[in-house]
Design a protein around this nucleic acid. Structure first.
Ligand SMILES: [Zn+2]
Ligand SMILES: [Zn+2]
Ligand SMILES: [Zn+2]
Ligand SMILES: [Zn+2]
Lengths: 163, 163
DNA sequence: TCTAGAAATGTTACAGCATAACATATGGAG
DNA sequence: CTCCATATGTTATGCTGTAACATTTCTAGA
């Protein structure tokens, strides 16, 4: 289960593959991936970072795909509901899921330096949190895990301030 | 390490003890627990739930302790910085810490039914998240864990809709 | 085919959350 | 006494998100 991190990669291919996968998934599940929804997903994939709803909206506006906040929020809502994107609460922003299809609880590693975000897996019902919930009789339905820190690139840049 | 959950308790005593502890801590560490800051902590403790900054502000206004948003936000910022309160990102709200003094990463269990919030402990650098961070070379500085679900009281109420 | 309903979009207006910037007061340290 | 740091007060504004309603589009059933 590749945690897909901060390294560079062939982004054009990455975007195209994810979009194709999303289209196929929607086809199979009778989901309506409309132009606006498709474009918002594409924007998130292209950006490859967390984007605010109003960032998205700016693009949509420029492209004549919708000018008001609800347009962006509704598309994002669709993408989040069906697992194509996640909301990052700490940033009030959205990001394309790096491994949709699989049912998962994402855990985000957010770099304070360059604002890159990596998506890892969490298992909220295991570990200390699951133990605490069980002790309290609390039933976890959904969990959010977000860590702030420094990605390897930014740590390296700090360590070696090579003139 | 008592996870302090959803059960009832002697709340007057709970508030008084926490306030006294905060005062002592500030005394020891030369922190300035001003009237506004003290009152905001007291409000959070009394409420014993997550409160929005504007909820707090309403109280302050009514008591002549400040009428504008920055007053509430600055007091909350002080409390969060020094570990007397936490922000719950998922709710855009704040809550008094149930075990200050100890250095800890809180994990919140948020009830969808009654909006009660319990604070448990997380160990972000252990478990799957720590593993993923280590693999990616990411250095975790701070982590947020928030779970949504049903508290025992609400589950019971659902299970037994006793006329 | 016609028609009723569901789903998606478009728009207005507003609600809720948070901070920048600047003015004022207060309490030591030198 | 003066300077400086800290805290407070206020104005104004920016960012985030949604309620409500009008319009369009598609589809399923009569
Ligand atoms: Zn994901
Ligand atoms: Zn970075
Ligand atoms: Zn705490
Ligand atoms: Zn409950």
């Amino acid at each position: 289960m590749d945690p897909l991190g901060f390294e560079h990669h062939d982004h054009r291919r990455c975007v195209a593959a994810a979009l194709a996968a999303a289209e196929a998934h929607c086809e199979r599940h009778r989901l309506n991936l409309t132009p606006v929804r498709r474009r918002v997903l594409e924007l998130l994939l292209e950006g490859h970072r967390a984007m605010g709803a109003y960032d998205i909206l700016d693009h949509l506006r420029a492209e004549g795909l919708g000018a008001q906040p609800p347009v962006a929020y509704r598309a994002l809502d669709f993408l989040v509901r069906h697992g194509f994107a996640h909301k990052i609460e700490r940033l009030n922003a959205f990001i394309a899921c790096t491994h949709p299809e699989t049912d998962h609880t994402p855990a985000f590693l957010i770099c304070r330096g360059c604002h890159a975000v990596a998506e890892a897996h969490a298992e909220p019902t295991r570990g200390m949190l699951g133990r605490a919930a069980a002790d309290l009789g609390f039933e976890i339905e959904e969990a959010m895990v977000e860590a702030l820190g420094r990605c390897p690139n930014c740590r390296e840049a700090e360590a070696a301030p090579c003139a």
